[in-house]
């Protein structure tokens, strides 16, 4: 389709003033698509070609439609999967909590001094151990007693001296 340059000139001036209709703008685009554009419109032609090129840009993804359809479709069998995922999420949460509690407990146990704990389950063994402990105490007592006896010698000596002193006094 060939249009004379006067017509184009007229359309262009309308275009710059925003007075063209959509059809007229389409005519301009068609005109500038072709070759043999006069020098004075070279850049204008580039502008209209730019618009055309822009329009060619498409969403280049074959899987897009399918993805949309899948997204908008009411989910039927997805319910079970959803339930599974949800329960897994809850389970994961609980697992984290349990681990946290366990670690905290461990930490607390490690830092606080060990309490006295009953270590014997077998009564016989417990009895033996008790006996051993008591024997140890009694042995210590025995040693202490023999030492105390030595002290007693001083006592006796003192009493002897006191007796002699009394005897002397009564004689006087």
């Amino acid at each position: 389709m060939l249009m004379d340059s006067n017509r184009i000139e007229e359309l262009l001036s309308k275009y710059w003033n925003c007075e063209t209709s959509l059809e007229e703008e389409q005519q301009l685009r068609e005109y500038f698509k072709g070759g043999d554009i006069p020098e004075q419109w070279r850049e204008t032609a580039a502008l209209f070609r730019y618009f055309e090129e822009n329009k060619k840009k498409t969403l280049n993804d074959v899987a897009f439609d399918a993805a949309v359809i899948q997204n908008v479709q009411p989910q039927k069998k997805g319910k079970l999967v959803k339930l599974f995922y949800n329960s897994m999420r809850i389970a994961a949460g609980i697992a984290v909590l349990v681990m946290a509690v366990w670690f905290v407990r461990k930490e607390v146990r490690d830092t606080t001094p060990q309490e006295v704990v009953d270590t014997y389950d077998d009564p016989q063994l417990a009895f033996e151990e008790t006996k051993k402990a008591l024997l140890m105490i009694s042995k210590s007592f025995g040693t202490a007693e023999s030492q105390a006896k030595k002290l007693n010698m001083f006592n006796e000596a003192q009493e002897e001296i006191q007796k002699k002193d009394k005897g002397k006094n009564s004689k006087l």
């Binding site: 822009n54 840009k57 969403l59 897009f64 439609d65 949309v68 359809i69 908008v72 479709q73």
Partner: peptide
Amino acid sequence: LESFQTRVLPVKNKLFR
């Protein structure tokens, strides 16, 4: 869904641009 596919989906390129 069918009319959604035939009527609405084709405008995707305009929306995309």
